[in-house]
Design a protein around this nucleic acid. Structure first.
Lengths: 222, 222
DNA sequence: TAGATTGTTAATCGATTAACAATC
DNA sequence: TAGATTGTTAATCGATTAACAATC
């Protein structure tokens, strides 16, 4: 168990996935799981699972395995999901409305408190019960309402300026849906969701599969 | 220039990003760029940029650099963005409606043709001008309308069965927004957008920054 | 206790970076 | 031609996998 070492991003990206599988197991009433069984289920090697978990602590028990519920709780705590996060959405256009709709479904622990816009025709309105405020008032709102996370749903050409204002206002994290890369100060965490990049990667893989199978009748191994 | 080698996923994930930057450069009227200049802009090492590109071909010219427009076109072709893709959305609930809204903004080359639902109250309706059909008719529609991509926006417990039906119907790719991992046959490409995983990773990073700065006043070296 | 499975160290593999000869 | 910058090979770094001693 390392002390305070920087965890690699590859590991962090796997944590939510571990947690999802543990959630399902718990729901099914499974009480314990070995790294080997977990490996068969989730598709990572048993070795990697143990290696990953031991970055954070020795959660298992030799000869037994891991407690499903215990491990679920540990990972939840590691991810910081044992508290509530207050969020605002910046930009109430199509993309912003999409995210508002999405977050309505979901996300215990993540609450969208308000949306902000520059467009006068939208300010004052509600979308899915969510109030839309004037972008001018964002800094004050973030400060007064203890907002943790800003969700950027504006046009790519305004994304950086919105990120700067959010950082200045004191958010601790930015969830960026604008199709551009933005810079934030070191005390602000950033997570990008580049949907079009994802779609382009899908297109690549579709064409790759086609190329590899169309030509020859040869079936690829693996 | 390798022949027909399997390209690593890390490389593929970078391609859309290269393309975005090249698009901006082209728009600004920049005609050529060296790997060094590109490195300063995009944040990958010059070495990595050259290494990445040379997986696909020698697009540069010694002593000169790369033609911005030329490279943009090459990468577009590599990604398969020189054609149109026809898509359908499975599930017209909140998440599906969100994606419908999102894809309206965007995406030259990616056309959403229809949505499908099981819920009788939604079938026959329109959302943002998009017709909602009965899920029963999906296979026929995919075949007749030459659909390339299915976008899964159903509940996680139905995601696998929808993926199976889409695969059977003959889609070449699946863009999965359900918060679960689905299995597809080898001739179908899959790209997952696990939004909640992304949000959880953001929470982790927020807490990590907090932990590292709150304790000691010590400023971390990179 | 014997058997099982972890936690952890060592070996391997793959991806990134550095170096440089080729060449425009 | 001289200078610049690529394409590509070699070196390094980091992440994954294998092995095994510790221990429940």
């Amino acid at each position: 168990m390392k002390k305070n070492a920087k965890i690699s991003n590859a590991v962090i990206k796997r944590l939510p996935r571990y947690r999802r599988y543990l959630y399902e197991l718990r729901k099914k009433g499974v009480e314990k799981i070995s790294s080997k069984e977990f490996s068969n289920l989730i598709g990572y090697t048993a070795s990697q699972i143990r290696q990953d978990l031991n970055n954070f602590g020795g959660f298992g028990q030799q000869g037994y395995g891991y407690s499903v519920e215990g491990l679920y709780d540990e990972i939840s705590a590691i991810l910081g999901l044992d508290r509530e996060y207050r969020m605002v959405i910046l930009g109430a256009g199509n993309l912003g409305q999409a995210i508002i709709k999405y977050t309505k479904v979901h996300k215990t622990g993540f609450k969208v408190c308000a949306a902000f816009e520059v467009k006068p025709s939208l300010i004052g309105k509600e979308i899915d019960g969510l109030k839309i405020y004037d972008y001018e008032d964002i800094v004050e709102y973030v400060e007064n309402e203890n907002i943790d996370i800003g969700i950027i749903c504006v046009d790519e050409k305004n994304a950086q300026e919105v990120a700067d204002k959010l950082s200045f206002a004191g958010v601790k994290g930015i969830w960026n849906f604008a199709p551009t890369d933005i810079e934030v100060p070191p005390h602000v965490a950033i997570e990008n969701v580049h949907l079009s990049d994802s779609l382009h990667a899908l297109a690549y893989h579709m064409n790759d599969i086609h190329k590899r199978t169309a030509h020859t009748g040869e079936s690829e191994k693996q």
